[in-house]
Design a protein around this nucleic acid. Structure first.
Lengths: 199, 199
DNA sequence: ACATATAAGTACCAGGTGGTACGTAATGAC
DNA sequence: GTCATTACGTACCACCTGGTACTTATATGT
């Protein structure tokens, strides 16, 4: 679709594509305990030379930005969609608990939460993406609570913004616990206890 | 007290003492956003040459262990003592909230929590100290809840160990929020909401 | 005065980091 | 075939990391 016109491309054909590198890097950052994965390590994992990587992403900041965007699209968006599904308030909270404590995607934690925790390691572009995703998530949560307040079975006495911030922080805590190896059952127990104040 | 005997020490007198280096390093680790403070930076801050530091502590692991011990003694012990003070259950929880959200010692977060979050960066000795302090803290909290269950005004329906783990995690979350610059008021609000399930 | 003992710093080590200059390989256009 | 065009990787850069061999400064014992 990129070169459908008659003018065929000239020169050596490209062998490594961006997608492959982004996925490899995402998995590396995601899996690793520490968020200290070097570009050298990523090049070795993706079997791409460093200049190739730098031609595709410009800098480490560019790479981590691309990784974060990919993660947001692949994992965060589905989670966000979960909140606007047609189901009850309590069922949605239960779904959040399931997701954080049981879902295999959170087995090694949430990449966004990890990157947020070590954000000082990243460049300015990545940092601003992190801030943007945080704001977007908080707004999504606040919307969820506002909706529930008018349509739900019970009115909310605590402010939607407070509830949103609370859910956001507790969600981050729960996935951090999974990343540190805590058992899904323990995470579930603690997370459910924390969210019980919202019901 | 170290050389009270008649036999006076021979050789060049020592100029830099361990305490000074430990305090400097503790403040550096504590203050810094990232826990990535290099030994070079600490040497520069403490105005000590690298070999001197290595003679005193053996390795980076030795230094971080000493720092953690000093922090435990200076900050964690007073906090622990707070739980065994003669006051009511609710007052003690309030004191915890005050400490995490208002106390100036937590203005840049809790060094233990920071080191725990980045524990993969440290050597084996430091890591085992972190684990020991965690176990000790959890046991202290569990004891607190067990005591409250028998002598307090209300019995506990949730297990003391669960309550202890919950308090431990919420405490860590609250001080992390302070470390990341969140306002004391916001931290207090969220932390108080979290602890409300314990009352 | 001189030897001995101790503590301190200079100047280095190998290895890893993010990042790049430059030669080379593979294609289409002519 | 020859040439321009493009993608690619080798081999490097300066800088920083934790860690150390070796010299030098300053004290006491005799």
């Amino acid at each position: 679709m990129t070169s459908s016109k008659g003018a065929t491309r000239r020169g050596r054909p490209i062998t490594r594509n961006r997608e492959h590198v982004v996925n490899t890097a995402m998995n590396a950052y995601w899996q690793d305990d520490n968020a200290a994965v070097s570009v050298n390590a990523i090049c070795a994992l993706a079997k791409v030379s460093k200049p190739s990587l730098y031609r595709d992403f410009g800098s480490e900041d560019g790479l981590t930005t691309a990784v974060l965007d990919r993660y947001a699209e692949a994992v965060l968006e589905p989670l966000k969609a979960l909140l606007s599904s047609p189901s009850t308030f309590d069922a949605k909270l239960d779904a959040m608990i399931d997701f954080a404590s049981q879902d295999s995607r959170m087995a090694t934690g949430c990449l966004f939460v990890k990157m947020r925790a070590t954000r000082s390691r990243f460049g300015p572009r990545t940092r601003s993406r992190i801030a943007a995703i945080e704001a977007d998530t908080l707004e999504g949560y606040a919307h969820f609570f506002r909706e529930s307040a008018v349509g739900g079975k019970k009115r909310y006495e605590i402010a939607a913004d407070l509830a949103a911030a609370y859910l956001y922080e507790q969600m981050g805590l729960a996935v951090s616990q999974r990343a540190s190896g805590k058992s899904p059952e323990s995470v579930r127990e603690l997370f459910a206890l924390a969210l019980s104040v919202l019901r």
